[in-house]
Design a protein around this nucleic acid. Sequence first.
DNA 1: TCAATGTGTATGTCCGGACAATCGGACTAC
DNA 2: GTAGTCCGATTGTCCGGACATACACATTGA
Lengths: 254, 254
Amino acid sequence: MPKPDVDPTRSLDLRVDRSSPVPLYFQLSQQLEAAIEHGGLTPGSLLGNEIELAARLGLSRPTVRQAIQSLVDKGLLVRRRGVGTQVVHSQVKRPLELSSLYDDLEAAGQRPATKVLVNTVLPASAAVAVALGVPEGGDVHRVERLRLAHGEPMAYLVNHLPTGLLDLDTEQLEATGLYRLMRSAGITLHSARQSIGARAATAGEAERLKETEGAPLLTMQRTTFDDTGRAVEFGDHIYRPTRYSFEFQLLVRP
Amino acid sequence: MPKPDVDPTRSLDLRVDRSSPVPLYFQLSQQLEAAIEHGGLTPGSLLGNEIELAARLGLSRPTVRQAIQSLVDKGLLVRRRGVGTQVVHSQVKRPLELSSLYDDLEAAGQRPATKVLVNTVLPASAAVAVALGVPEGGDVHRVERLRLAHGEPMAYLVNHLPTGLLDLDTEQLEATGLYRLMRSAGITLHSARQSIGARAATAGEAERLKETEGAPLLTMQRTTFDDTGRAVEFGDHIYRPTRYSFEFQLLVRP
DNA sequence: TCAATGTGTATGTCCGGACAATCGGACTAC
DNA sequence: GTAGTCCGATTGTCCGGACATACACATTGA
């Protein structure tokens, strides 16, 4: 008969620094997350009740709950009333975020390269005007980029942005991703509406992507909004499906 | 000069029923969400501070905060310290959930039809075994379905499931979606890992979907996990891109 | 043997209060 | 006029406590 489970957080050396400006609940959640990541807390193990954990750390129960809740929201923990809080059996890695292709590639160690083909300001077409919520015919930025990895074209990216939000420097666009530029310009991204589909390549697209006409392409259209609800970007992207696919993890909201 | 903004929740007739078993914070969040949905709270408007709102409803501030927080998590509200809580400028509709194709179609009013082509148990191939975390060669369910809308084929769905979780009745599979079956069998879905791509149709696929060989297809592979971390389903789906695309909204987690 | 009942334990909900951090605007000083 | 400073307003964090509720397990009963 196996020894009854002991609280695995007991052997974890959890500590909080009350002089730090970092919120206590955040300190705790980070340590718990690190422990889960590094195997200190094994999948399926029970965390031991909140009251005792709070007492041991010298925290209040609401603070401990806030820490745990943030990890539940991330999908790392599961709470069961009357039972306890358990570590989810791994598999959870990247709970779908608003990823830029650039970051995705970089994270995959691919050292992405970007070639800006067009960077101009022109009157908004009807479709662009609707997507961005600007008057038709008004000025908008248009950026066309070819993204490469290992010298091979991976995607062709067309983006439209309202003017006045940020200045689109071609050099910067080639050095980093569009989202990073927007973030560093003080724009707080909030949400995006995406549509992913597929279609056959036109002759022009085929040439740019080194594909053949009629070859299947992966398409993505996206409108991104900041936290005031303004549309800050409208993208129309095509990807070579042999080189790229959308991978993500998503959580069932309880 | 416009009249200074008054708290728009004042004109909202918010009430909570303390005799109801529904949590107070949930009652409040539902009413606020309904008000946002129906225009009672217009985008961009400030909500008025939490303290006063709590006082007016006879609730404590933590309870009101919990209600507001849940809407912030949904992307409907934005909080700014020192400023207040505002309604996001709409556009937010469906914050990407683990959607079944069946539910998607039904929500779109398409009355989906399902034709079960294969419903059997067979030894797991290597790929299926890895995805489901079961021994290779062990028994697994295999289900192949053709999904139609308006009589036209839309998708070809191949799914593998571990045995012993639920009994897959062909009739039920044709009457509803797989996810609904799993849920009603007491399985609590937790997360899923998805991969969306594109490729050309093979001859066999083309025939089943009324496409031509080489036509672009949208593909999705998905492994779904329950809250104990078990893989409960592995799906390999192909969609006709002229009939279906993946549409979803996603939030930037703060 | 199996179903109904009780019991302990853990999370879920809720309260009332306190202080800190930050934002925006008004005011002041140069 | 411009920059810096102060101040009110609002959310962010944290506390300590209380009771409700649901689950797992043991006990009891048919």
